[in-house]
């Protein structure tokens, strides 16, 4: 316990801890990336063989018959997602703006809390709500009800991202705008939101990606359909639903189709995410004016 030896010993322990922590972090990164690569590898290996022209253009065949495809499900997913985005993105950005720019009060805290709650509400519960709000009064399953369920799920994600990004915009920028005599709405839209646009779009993108492959709320809203349907008020097939049905079925041919459907689904989602990323990084999507 003499004075000169103490620092040396501590130094060793500290160095050891440092090395241990570094190793752990590297190991964690590798461990997280392994399943990702494994999932993508399996999707490509198992799925690519069943993706062909028929798969993309035909509707499902009854079990036992080989062939058929998921064209109706691909289009159905597109329809449902369009409805969801029309509902979710404007409401989400609007409430995000409220929270950041107006919501420094009791009601703002309440909205922030309910947005948190809504974000935490399991998708299956949203499905039940959409079922009893839209499907029951309409008396049948529909693409619209599926869109409503997914749209509701998008709102809190978009709102949260918008608020967070707007709060990161330095106040000096707003003050500068007010100093120039620019009205508040214009400052918010063309200056704060525009400055934050990359982040806001990332938020929308995450919400979209989260919702695009969502299956649980569609089980009893869009319901699925073996045939073509382009009407909003009829049961509609969705890619994710089709993958689920095929995956838990006992038929080998359907398993193959499930992998193919999953591959298409992931390509659509990753494609959308990548497209948004590229356009944002080029600065083409600066909202506002």
């Amino acid at each position: 316990m003499s004075a000169p030896s103490a620092p040396q010993q501590v130094g060793l322990i500290r160095r050891f801890t440092n090395a241990g922590a570094t190793t752990f972090a590297v190991a964690a990164a590798i461990l997280v990336l392994v399943p990702l690569l494994a999932i993508f590898a399996y999707l490509v290996i198992k799925g690519i063989g069943s993706v062909n022209w028929a798969f993309l253009t035909q509707t499902p065949k009854p079990p036992g018959e080989v062939g058929g495809g998921m064209a109706n499900a691909i289009v159905g997913t597109g329809i449902i997602l369009a409805v969801a985005s029309v509902i979710g993105v404007p409401l989400g950005i609007g409430s995000g703006i409220y929270l950041a720019e107006y919501g420094r009060n009791r009601f703002g805290d309440l909205v922030r809390f309910t947005a948190d709650v809504l974000n935490g509400v399991p998708s299956i519960v949203i499905g039940i709500a959409a079922y009893s709000l839209v499907v029951v009064p309409q008396k049948h399953f529909s693409a619209f009800s599926g869109g409503v369920a997914l749209g509701i799920m998008m709102i809190p994600t978009v709102a949260r991202a918008t608020e967070e990004m707007l709060l990161m915009v330095p106040n000096v920028i707003r003050e500068a705008a007010y100093g120039l005599g620019i009205p508040k709405w214009r400052t918010t839209l063309s200056i704060s939101l525009r400055t934050a646009s990359a982040g806001v779009i990332t938020g929308c993108m995450l919400a979209f990606a989260r919702v695009a492959g969502e299956t649980a709320p569609l089980l009893f809203t869009a319901f699925g359909n073996q045939f073509w349907n382009l009407k909003l008020n009829q049961p509609t097939a969705a890619l994710s639903l089709q993958v689920f049905t095929y995956a838990i079925s006992p038929y080998d041919d359907w398993h193959k189709q499930a992998w193919a459907g999953a591959l298409i689904l992931i390509v659509l989602i990753v494609g959308a995410v990548a497209a948004v990323r590229i356009t944002t990084s080029r600065g083409m999507l600066k909202g506002g004016s």
Binding site: L36, Y42, L206, R210, G213, A216, S240, A247, I266, V270
Partner: peptide
């Protein structure tokens, strides 16, 4: 890549989980 993990739909995790 980590962000991509979040973008994978849960039904695909399920599919991968089963098989």
């Amino acid at each position: 890549l980590v962000e991509l993990l979040a973008a994978i739909p849960s039904v695909i995790y399920g599919l991968w989980g089963i098989f």
